[in-house]
Amino acid sequence: MIHIAEIFTRKNSGEIARQRLKFLLVSDRAGCSPELLEMIRNDFLHTLSRYVEIDAGDLTVCVLRNASDGYKGKLPALYASIPIRDLRK
C-alpha cells in the first residue's frame, strides 16, 4: 500500500524523465559534461564582472554541434548570452 504522504510528495515520473533528458542532452550535444559548462560559465562571470555589471542569473552558456564552418568541416561552437546590466562599473 502506498503511504498517504508519499502520494503528495511523489514527483511525476514524466517530469523526472524530462529533467534527466535535459541534462543528458546538454552533455551529449556538447561532448562535454554539464560540470565543465558550469565552470566555463563561472569563469565568464568572474572575468566579466571585473569590468561590467552582469546579471548572474541570465548568463547562459551552451555548445552547439556543427554550428561553425571550420577548415575541417563543421565544428561545435560555444555560445554565450550575457546580458549587461550596467556598462560602467
Binding site: 515520473s13 514524466g14 524523465a17
Partner: peptide, 13 residues
C-alpha cells in the same frame, strides 16, 4: 497522470 512525457515535451527537447 504525469507518468509519460507529452508530445510538447518531446518537441521542446
Amino acid at each position: 497522470r504525469g507518468d509519460m512525457m507529452s508530445v510538447d515535451d518531446v518537441m521542446d527537447i
